[in-house]
Amino acid sequence: MSAHNSLTLTPAATATDQVFHALYSKIVTLELAPGAKVSEAEIARSLGVSRQPVRDAFYRLSELGFMLIRPQRATTVTYISPQALFDARFIRCALEVECLRTAIDRVTDDDIAKLNALVAAQDEALQTNDKIEFHRLDDSFHELICDIAGHPKAWVIIHDQKVHLDRLRYLSLTIGAQSALDDHVEIMDCIRNRDADRAEKELRKHLARILKVLAQVRDTHPELIEANAHQRRL
């Protein structure tokens, strides 16, 4: 598979971590598309590692819902599951709303400066069309709000859940990056003015955008969506 040839390793604690992060990135950016077959032997050879860390990385990705491992059959990248997306968005919204409201009670001028710097860096990434950096900075913005609230573990839970959103989020950057950045600007205005009610409204609007993206992807890229997904009115 051609995608294997472009896999590279970055420094990490273990070989399994390196393989995991390399494959995770390829899946999120759709370089390994839903339905693609993946081979332990081919990936091990392309990355110059033994098959055991590849097998372990496959298991971790399957636990996240990114890979389907079946005995005596090819391992494949899973299709985007609307149900998993709905669940992940619900959990993310519930946790982030509480973190945002708490953060507004605790935020300092230094915190605001750090958040402003992230928004400015996002704007720069948007201007240079650096989707991967924009995506990373988007996460950093939301993570910092959880940290300011004094609940860093909330982001750990959100991070584990949002993997179901990330493929759609990456797709949405082509058409929705400016809207995402504009949302962050509005949220920042609420934080500076200590307006928790308006901040919650803006955050809910921001996190609901993924539902519109799902509707668009169903129309434009139906091959990416789980064929027998439970249908729900958006």
Rank of each mutant, 00 (worst) to 15 (best):
Y170W: 15
Y170K: 13
L171I: 10
L171R: 10
L171A: 07
L171Y: 12
S172T: 08
L173R: 01
L173F: 05
L173Y: 06
I175G: 12
G176H: 12
Q178G: 08
Q178S: 07
S179Y: 09
S179D: 14
A180S: 10
L181Q: 08
D182I: 05
D182P: 05
D182S: 10
H184A: 05
H184I: 02
H184S: 04
V185G: 03
V185L: 12
E186C: 10
E186V: 12
I187N: 04
M188N: 09
M188I: 11
M188D: 05
M188W: 02
D189V: 06
D189H: 07
R192H: 14
N193T: 15
R194M: 04
R194I: 03
R194K: 10
A196M: 09
A196F: 09
A196W: 08
D197I: 03
R198E: 11
A199N: 04
E200K: 03
K201N: 13
K201I: 10
E202N: 11
L203W: 02
L203M: 07
R204G: 01
R204Q: 04
L207Q: 06
L207C: 02
L207I: 03
A208Q: 15
R209G: 08
I210N: 00
L211Q: 11
K212I: 05
L214N: 00
L214I: 00
L214S: 01
A215G: 08
Q216V: 12
Q216M: 14
V217I: 04
D219K: 14
D219H: 13
H221E: 13
H221P: 06
H221D: 13
P222Q: 09
P222W: 07
P222A: 06
P222I: 06
L224N: 06
L224H: 06
L224Y: 11
I225R: 01
I225V: 05
E226M: 06
E226P: 04
A227D: 13
N228G: 04
N228A: 09
A229P: 03
H230Y: 15
H230K: 15
Q231S: 15
R232N: 12
R233W: 14
R233G: 13
